Computed example of a mutant assay.
Amino acid sequence: MTEEPLTAGKNAVEVVRVGDTVRRARDAGAAFAALVLTHLESVGYPHAPRYLGIDEHGRDILSFIQGTTTDHPTQRAHGAYAGGGRMLRELHEVTAGHFLAADKECVIHGDPGPFNTIFQQGLPVAFIDWSSCRPGARLEDLGYMAWTWCIQSQGRVPITEQARHLRELRDGYGFIEPEQLLDAMVRRQTCVADIEAVNVNDPKLTPARRRHAEAAFAWATADRELIHRHRTLLLSALKQSG
């Protein structure tokens, strides 16, 4: 069958569509992701692709989910932020206490940005690219999602609109102390910035990967500065009822 390259997600080396399936090159996280996706299917979690095995080329086979990713609020419909928050909360709930969570709170997606979320008619329906899933803390996942979905130093999104989106996402997930959420967001930004600052000058990486590192460092640090600059406004929005 014809293979159609896919651009959704941001970490995969090779992702192609073959009919109603996606074929994805296996990486270090593939085996654990397969276990997680199998568990999610067994409990009826609807917001993830189904794991269908390994093809003759050694690639994971996943069910194809129709839709697109997004990179700007204008591409998302009313209710998208609350819906995304609910999707993440449900993932955490159905993996809490499971052996896959080991000694952590739950299994986290690890990279639940809008670039790893499939939208249909502007509403989120599924998370893709599960290669970063692992045992972890809920706030680690939620902090990253809140940052990448709601905070944009680029794109000319008014800060009041960003604050409203942040509150909607938090309300969709469930109550988290405002200070805890903002601190979790900044921790994830700092983590990305620290990692990519090292990668920028790593001679073992390709020039393309080092350019990506430079862009990622600039993205994380600019968005972190935006949170610091508007922390009072963001806290005020989070303290309002939904």
Rank of each mutant, 00 (worst) to 15 (best):
E3R: 09
E4I: 10
L6M: 04
L6T: 01
A8S: 07
G9Q: 08
K10N: 14
V13I: 01
V16G: 00
V18F: 01
G19R: 05
D20L: 12
D20E: 15
T21N: 06
V22I: 08
V22C: 00
R23I: 00
R24M: 11
D27C: 14
G29L: 04
A31E: 15
A31Q: 09
A33H: 03
L35P: 05
V36Y: 07
L37S: 11
L37P: 15
T38R: 05
T38C: 02
L40E: 01
E41G: 15
V43Y: 08
Y45A: 01
P46T: 13
R50I: 05
R50W: 04
Y51I: 00
Y51D: 01
G58F: 01
R59T: 07
R59A: 07
R59N: 12
D60A: 01
I61K: 06
L62A: 04
F64W: 15
Q66A: 14
Q66T: 09
G67H: 02
T68H: 03
T70L: 04
H72F: 00
Q75M: 00
R76W: 03
A77N: 03
A80T: 09
A82D: 10
G85N: 09
M87F: 08
L88P: 02
L88E: 02
R89G: 07
V94L: 02
T95F: 12
T95D: 07
F99C: 05
E105C: 09
I108N: 02
P112L: 14
P114E: 14
F119D: 00
Q120N: 01
Q121A: 12
G122T: 11
L123D: 02
V125S: 03
A126E: 04
A126D: 05
F127D: 14
F127N: 12
F127C: 14
W130D: 04
S131N: 07
S131K: 06
S132E: 07
R134T: 03
P135F: 11
G136V: 05
G136H: 05
G136L: 04
G136Q: 09
R138V: 15
L139D: 06
E140D: 14
E140R: 12
G143R: 06
Y144N: 15
Y144V: 09
M145G: 09
A146I: 05
T148L: 12
W149P: 09
C150S: 13
S153K: 03
R156M: 03
P158G: 00
P158C: 00
P158K: 00
Q162R: 07
Q162V: 09
G172I: 11
G172Y: 12
Y173C: 10
Y173D: 10
E177G: 06
E177A: 15
E179W: 03
E179Y: 05
Q180L: 15
L181V: 13
L182I: 03
M185K: 06
R188T: 06
Q189E: 11
C191I: 07
C191W: 13
V192H: 07
A193P: 05
A193M: 04
I195F: 10
A197G: 15
V200I: 15
L205S: 04
R209A: 15
R211A: 15
R211S: 14
H212K: 13
F217Y: 11
W219H: 13
W219K: 10
D223Q: 11
R224S: 14
R224Y: 06
E225F: 13
H228C: 12
H228F: 13
R231Y: 11
R231I: 10
L234E: 04
L234R: 02
L238Q: 13
K239L: 13
G242F: 15
